[in-house]
Every structure is written in structure tokens, then in C-alpha cells.
Computed example of a mutant assay.
Amino acid sequence: MTTHKVNIAEKLAAFTEQWAPHRIARVNDYEVKAAKLQGEFVWHSHEDTDELFLVVAGTLTIRLRDGDVVLGPGEMYVVPRGTEHCPAADEEAHILLFEPSGTTNTGTAGGTRTREPVDA
């Protein structure tokens, strides 16, 4: 990836597939990924890293075993490493994820929803 200005809205407009992370930037050993989400993901955790969710549009619920966190546009939440969580959105939400390079989107759960990020 080259160093240049990134328009988040343009990056999100460039794809329609949901639950498929698109890498839009790198920061040291971290990746910034854009994604569109609707419905419920899988319960999973990331044993070695925190995961930051930033909502760009829509509403995202981060389901946790001890209570939900509901996020709207401009709000973010960091899921601590090892914390089981399940992202969900009743209507399509657009988000950014910040996590170390190589982090699997389904964490410890694996399965058919596992996707490698693609460059956007």
C-alpha cells in the first residue's frame, strides 16, 4: 500500500459483500479494515489481541457474555483480548476495524465466515 489520502466513504462504496474485511491502511504492524455488516456474526475471541470497532454508519451491537455494547456513528469500542464477543447489526452497518496484521476475523471460532482481508 502506498502512502496517500484515504476516503473512507469511497472505500466502503467500492464493495457490497458483508462480513468481508477490506484492508484500507497499515499502521506499523496493524491493519485498518473497512467492512459492511448485517445480521449476526459468530461468537469468537482473539486470544492475543484487542480489537477496535469504529462505527462509520448505522448501528452495531457488540454482544458480550455480560451485556451488550451498542454503537452508533462516530462511536468505538475496544474488545479486550480473550473476550468472547459477537458483532451484530439489524440493518447494514459500516465499520472500521483496527487490529494487528494477520488477525483472523473469526478468531478462535474459525468456520465458513473466516475471511482473509483484501486490499481495497
Rank of each mutant, 00 (worst) to 15 (best):
M1I: 02
T2E: 14
T3K: 14
T3R: 11
T3Q: 09
H4F: 07
K5S: 15
N7C: 13
A9K: 13
A9V: 03
E10K: 15
E10R: 13
A13K: 13
F15T: 05
E17S: 13
Q18F: 00
W19C: 05
W19E: 06
W19G: 02
A20V: 13
P21V: 05
H22D: 01
R23C: 02
R23V: 01
R23Y: 02
I24R: 00
I24L: 01
A25Y: 01
A25P: 00
V27K: 00
V27S: 07
N28E: 13
D29V: 08
D29W: 07
Y30I: 06
A34I: 06
A34E: 01
A34P: 04
K36C: 07
Q38N: 13
Q38R: 15
Q38Y: 05
E40V: 12
F41Y: 14
W43F: 04
S45A: 11
H46P: 06
E47F: 05
E47H: 11
E47K: 11
E47V: 11
D50C: 05
D50E: 12
E51Y: 02
F53R: 06
F53N: 10
T59W: 10
T59N: 15
L60D: 04
L60Y: 03
L60W: 06
T61V: 12
T61S: 07
I62Q: 08
I62C: 05
I62W: 01
R63W: 00
R65I: 04
V69E: 09
P73I: 10
G74M: 09
M76N: 09
V79Y: 00
V79D: 04
R81N: 09
R81S: 12
R81F: 03
T83K: 04
E84N: 05
E84M: 03
H85D: 02
P87K: 12
A88H: 02
A89C: 12
E92Q: 15
E92Y: 03
A93R: 04
I95Q: 09
L96F: 04
L97G: 05
F98H: 10
F98E: 07
E99N: 09
S101G: 14
S101V: 15
G102T: 10
T103C: 10
T106P: 14
T106N: 14
T106H: 11
A109W: 03
G111E: 09
T112R: 13
T112S: 15
R115H: 15
P117N: 03
P117K: 04
P117S: 06
P117R: 02
A120R: 07
